[in-house]
């Protein structure tokens, strides 16, 4: 067998693929954060809790109303997105003109409240969400056994990431959004409803988090604390990619997934730290992040 640094090459291929799949989750989540930060300048610490809500919502929909996975994949993000719109409209907007630190503290507080309430109701042992019938089983790639569901995750995540990038960078609606964040007053003078645009953008960012949550439900244990650990990593990804850069968030998410996956093979003890190490190095060499514009 061909070896690389004492690890069979076949094992390495498998780990690269798995890293890419985990990276897809990072990409989806950091994309939502980047959209919200880039356009609203809100550091959304509630993102992990909203991701969790997406997954939990899918479980509750299944258990109480029998809603299947494919419907939940749309319905759950919509419901959580509406919740996000309420958050923006009634809480975040009130402090929109204050310093960033206020929105950071507010969203952090919201996250703790959501997490605490659901921990009280559901405990932390987690709930199971069955893998949808059509995606059970897997295929033997020779170097690894790839469950169909994991393959679906990466396809779905990439399609959504590309769609979001396309919408913001290439469509008229996206140009309104970008212009609104550059100069809200001028946009308003042109007759564009900027506050509505802001609310919808936040709602969309939240939907992305909830969508990632539903994608994660069948493979991770669904519990109220599932977002808390992930959030810090995702923030590191956003910082590495460059705050607010959409393409940066997606590429860095995938890249960090791979780096983390490789660390799990060569030195597993460090796999929860490696992303922060990269963050430190990037901040030292390129303070604006890999894809950020130098201020």
């Amino acid at each position: 067998m061909t070896m690389l640094f004492g690890v069979p090459l076949a094992v390495l291929y498998g780990q690269l693929l798995l890293g890419l799949i985990n990276g897809a989750f990072y990409a989806l989540l950091s994309l939502g954060l980047a959209v919200i930060f880039g356009l609203l300048k809100i550091i959304n610490f509630a993102h992990g809790a909203l991701y969790m809500l997406g997954a939990l919502c899918a479980v509750v929909l299944l258990n109480t109303l029998g809603v299947n996975y494919w419907v939940a994949l749309i319905l759950s993000p919509v419901l959580v997105g509406i919740f996000g719109i309420f958050l923006e409209r009634f809480l975040l907007r009130r402090i929109a003109h204050e310093d960033h630190i206020y929105s950071l503290l507010l969203t952090f507080g919201i996250a703790l409240v959501i997490q605490g309430v659901f921990t009280n109701i559901y405990g932390v042992s987690g709930m199971r969400y069955p893998i949808p019938e059509a995606l059970r089983g897997g295929v033997n790639l020779g170097f690894m056994f790839l469950p169909y569901y994991r393959a679906w995750v990466i396809v779905a995540a990439l399609v959504v990431c590309f769609g979001t990038w396309f919408m913001i960078e290439k469509t008229k609606l996206g140009s309104y959004l970008r212009a609104g964040t550059e100069n809200a007053k001028l946009m308003q003078a042109f007759g564009i409803n900027v506050p509505l645009l802001v609310t919808l953008t936040y709602g969309f960012g939240v939907m992305l988090a909830a969508f990632a949550g539903v994608l994660a439900a069948p493979i991770y244990s669904v519990s109220p604390v599932m977002g808390a650990n992930l959030l810090i990593v995702v923030f590191a990804v956003v910082v590495i990619g460059g705050m607010g850069s959409i393409i940066g968030a997606v590429l860095t998410g995938l890249g960090m997934g791979i780096i983390e996956g490789l660390t799990k093979v060569f030195y597993p003890e460090a796999s929860s730290t490696v992303i922060f190490l990269v963050m430190v190095v990037v901040l030292l060499l390129r303070p604006a992040g890999l894809f950020g514009k130098e201020a």
Partner: peptide, 29 residues
């Protein structure tokens, strides 16, 4: 690392290890 949410990488290592027993010396979630 404690805690870990994604075990796919470790399970893959276990699968390719050739051992006939995979033991979990961890707890909870």
């Amino acid at each position: 690392p404690f805690p870990t949410s994604d075990f796919s990488s470790f399970i893959l290592q276990a699968q390719t290890s050739g051992s006939n027993v995979v033991a979990l010396a961890n707890a909870g979630s």
